[in-house]
Design a protein around this nucleic acid. Structure first.
Lengths: 110, 110
DNA sequence: CCTATTAATCGTAATATTGCGATTAATATG
DNA sequence: CATATTAATCGCAATATTACGATTAATAGG
């Protein structure tokens, strides 16, 4: 079955998987980077910057939004997207927590 | 098409996407955590710890291995898996680099 | 040599993702 | 009001992922 089994995963595990999934496609990483690099929010400029169709970009933005990584504000006819800094920091922290143990104990055995 | 378009993504973008994809499933996050928590490498114990079939666990391990996050050493009949600490640190650093700009500029606009 | 044990791989089915064109809804502008 | 512009959504096709049982290959132990 394609669906992931409904198993008792911890909140942290689910959170990490959710954030990771959002970043699991280079196009979404590129979009996120664009949103970060531009100081002010860019809107549909992403379509011009990347060689991807408008509908596809919109879909990727939707996924980034659902993962909570970005926010969108209506601004006239266009929509202004930008990064949710707090969420990004939180995501980074959760990941750091998971990796922390491994960083503390350099080489385990292999 | 399900395949991602072959587009000029940067090395960093592709790396992040690759690592993120490896962590984009809670089962793989759980497996990675198990490998980190146990000081010594555990082998097939993962199957006992998680409510997932052996073949499925093997598949997840393969993906973590292909992403370069874990290593596997043959140890008799069983195989000893463990985390590649250096790679994890590198992955974390690359991610931090991407998020750094966003953390420096707190709220952009929305 | 025979038999467990361990873990990879194969085959298959169900579902998810990706990508795009076309359409739609909403706001701006003349 | 008519018309552009912007971005979401729908529908579809191609492909990827997930999960599992069954099988296979390899080693350990008697």
């Amino acid at each position: 079955m394609g669906a992931s089994k409904i198993i008792n995963y911890s909140e942290a595990e689910l959170q990490i998987a959710k954030f990771a999934k959002a970043l699991s496609h280079p196009a979404r990483v590129a979009i996120l980077q664009l949103l970060i690099q531009k100081q002010s929010c860019i809107c549909g400029d992403i379509v011009d910057e990347l060689p991807i169709a408008q509908s596809t970009v919109s879909q990727h933005l939707k996924e980034l939004k659902q993962a909570g990584l970005i926010k969108g504000n209506i601004d006239g006819a266009s929509i202004c997207y930008c990064v949710d800094t707090e969420v990004l920091q939180t995501a980074n922290q959760i990941l750091n927590n998971v990796l922390a143990v491994s960083i503390l104990t350099p080489t385990s055995c292999c």
